[in-house]
Each structure stands twice: as C-alpha cells, then as structure tokens.
Design a protein around this nucleic acid. Sequence first.
DNA 1: TGTACATCAGTGAACGCGCGTTCACTGATGTAC
DNA 2: TGTACATCAGTGAACGCGCGTTCACTGATGTAC
Lengths: 215, 215
Amino acid sequence: MSWSGPSDGGSGRRGYHHGNLREALIDAALELIGAKGPAGFTIAEAARLAGVSPAAPYRHFRDADALLAEVAVRGFDRFATRLAKAWNEGRPEKVRAFEDVGRAYLAFAREEPAYYAAMFDSSLAAEAHPDLQAASDRAFAVLRDAAEQVAAMVPKARRPPALMMALHIWAMAHGIASLFVRAVPARRKLPMPAEDLLEAGVLLYLQSLGLAGGE
Amino acid sequence: MSWSGPSDGGSGRRGYHHGNLREALIDAALELIGAKGPAGFTIAEAARLAGVSPAAPYRHFRDADALLAEVAVRGFDRFATRLAKAWNEGRPEKVRAFEDVGRAYLAFAREEPAYYAAMFDSSLAAEAHPDLQAASDRAFAVLRDAAEQVAAMVPKARRPPALMMALHIWAMAHGIASLFVRAVPARRKLPMPAEDLLEAGVLLYLQSLGLAGGE
DNA sequence: TGTACATCAGTGAACGCGCGTTCACTGATGTAC
DNA sequence: TGTACATCAGTGAACGCGCGTTCACTGATGTAC
C-alpha cells in the first residue's frame, strides 16, 4: 500500500499539486475495498485518504464506478500474470503445473483480497467497461491455454473439451476461494487448508481423465 | 413477492396498524436485494415499499443487519429444503440423486437470486448471528449426508472422506453459480447451460472414484 | 536565459439528497372485571 | 355486555451525517519565442 509518487517518496503532500493523485486514489480505493468491500468505498473517502479535496478525484475518474473498474482491471492483470507464472508453460510437468495454477488462484484470493473483491464482488457491468471485459478475458485465457495442453495428453477418444475443463477448474477454485478463504455468512471452518482441498479436487478430477498418478 | 397479511389479503393498508409488517419488510428487503444487491438495500426504502413510516421497522428489527440476517436465515432454510427434496433420501439411485442435488443448487441460485445474494454476498458476520450460522449448517448438512452415502459406495480402500467430497461439490456448484449464473464483472458466456457444466463436472468427479457410468 | 502565456490539477464552498435513528405522540387492540 | 385501562404498533417531525457533484477560482507547471 505505498503510493509511489515520482517526486514524493512517501513523504506526504508537497504543495498544491499532488503529483500522482491517480495512483494514490487507486491505492486508497484498494485499502477501502479491502476493509469494507466494494460497496463500502466512496470517492469522498478515497479523496480524504489521499489527502485531497473531494472534488479532486473527478479530474481523474468520471465517477466511483470508473475508479472501481480501474482497480478491477489492474487486479485481473496481476491475476493473469500470477497464473501465467504458476503455469510456467507447463514446466516441469503439465499436470503438476496445472495444480500450481490452482494454488496460485487461491494464493491471489488470499493475499490480494481487495483486488479479488473488486474483480468478483463488485456489481460493475462488464459490458459498460470494455477494458474490464478484456482484462478478465486475458486472465481466463491463461487458464484455458493450460487446460488445452493438459487435455491434449488425454487419448483423443475420451478427451474432454478443454474449455469445459478450464471452466470446471475455475469454478472449483473460485468456489473454494469464495466460500472458505473470504468472509461470507456461509463460511465454514475447513478441516484442511483450502489449498489442499483444491489440490485434492483437481487431482481427483484429472484422475477421472486418466491423468495424474491415480495408480 | 406477495405479502401474506392475515386480515389484509393484498388489498393494501387498512388503517393505523399494518397487521403483518414484519413479513412485509422481509418481502420488501428481498425485492430490493434482488434489484440492487445486499449492499443496495436500506431500511428506509424497505419501509417505503411496505408503506409505513421510516421509524416503523425498528419495532421489528434492531437494524438493517438484523433484517438482512433474517432474510438470509430464511434463504438457507428454503435452500436446505430444496436440496433435501432433490436428494430424496438417495432415491431412486444414489449417484443420480447426488447429481440432482447439484441441479437443485443451481436452480436455487437462478430462481431465488435475492435469497442467494443475502446468503452468500452479504457482509454479515455469521458469528454475530448465531441463528444464521445454524441455518447455514442445516443446509450444508443435507449435502454432507448425501456425500456420505455416496462415498459409502466406494470400496473402503480408496474411499475419500465424505466431508471432503461434500466440500468439493459445494465449491464447484457455488463457483458455477457465482461465475456464470449471476452478474459479475468476470462473468462469461457459457457454451453450454450451467446445469450441464455442473453435471459434467460432478460426473467426472464421481468417475474418478469408480462411481458413475464411466463406461 | 528570461518572459508571457496557456494549460493543467488542484481548492473550497455550496447544493440537494437520502439515510439511520430518536422522540414524544396516538390510534387500535386486547383483556380484566 | 360494557367499561377502564394497559399494551402494542404505528406516526411524523426532527436531527446530524456523509455523499456525489458543480462551480468559479487559483496556484503550479510547462512551453514558445
């Protein structure tokens, strides 16, 4: 949560011009979303956190939704990067790398709850923010590509559609993240780490395809 | 969304006393949550919808959270009933009945989005509402019991923990419901109905256990 | 290198709004006798 | 059956609050010459 002003260096304000207000507002939004959820953040409070007047944000964002969308876009970009890193082009071994993607998914939800909430819990209409749709697509593409390469290992006769595989894994990872990693009324105490739960699920799933050491 | 007043019969107000304000407020809350999500509902607007003054709700609920919690509790109860009905004691056949539970899960999310949102998208702390926790437990118990009976069909040597199975299925169902049935920024067009996606996922999962017609 | 000027990124005061919550109140209902 | 009274479930006016948004403004920055 550092705001990386160019000439600021974290020392606070330095006069009439903020210097990097856009970034500071995004940082503030993240902080607020993390604390109160996407619905609990206001432009006014973000401005206060950034140390500017309530009118200042309007120089950079049309409204609260635009700021929220920007946060979500950045979230998806970080998310995509993280998943791609975990996949690592399927090295050293595809099934193992695929499981790593699942772990990276949960790790992101756990370590970046504010981004995650902006991405998945906000009521932004993706249609109204084309760049948001695009960013979400980029993240999903990583998962789909990985699924495609894993699916290709299955004999053609019983090979499932890679897209379906990707959707299944995404759904399970997202379900676990939503139910067990974050705070919801239905949240349960897990008898095991969420990561292990997902790993076991993915493993069973892949076993049914004849992959993964299902002896 | 009818308010079932005892002496009212849907004909509107009948004087100083509403007669069934508590129910009317819950109905109003459902309508608002359905339209704007759990965060977009206010006590004042619920009162307006119910046709009473903004102070009236406080005779029945301590605050907005209490009303929201009541809605969520009722949602979990309906949810549990619906899942139990789908499971139908494992008849006519356990694996098939288990799939039915999955279908019922999605059907609920689709047909009762307001309840579903109150249950899973609100920021209520379950700890602060013990009855909410209990209601959520009752719903999960249905799924866990079903999983237990399905797991019992697997030879002991490779039988997975039933609790884990229940968590996997719940996570996948919830993930699909969250990502593809409801409106979120990351929502994708599915190449198939969500129900089919879940059914295929559950089937593959059970196949890995040697259950389900894995030819 | 210096000066004039355009542009940019903030200010701060103001507005109308809806919300949550309180308060003394009052109309309606139910009950004791 | 009738009356007195307690209780209950609403009223409506009021309060303080924070928000989103606008506006004319002004200080700071950058650029042309």
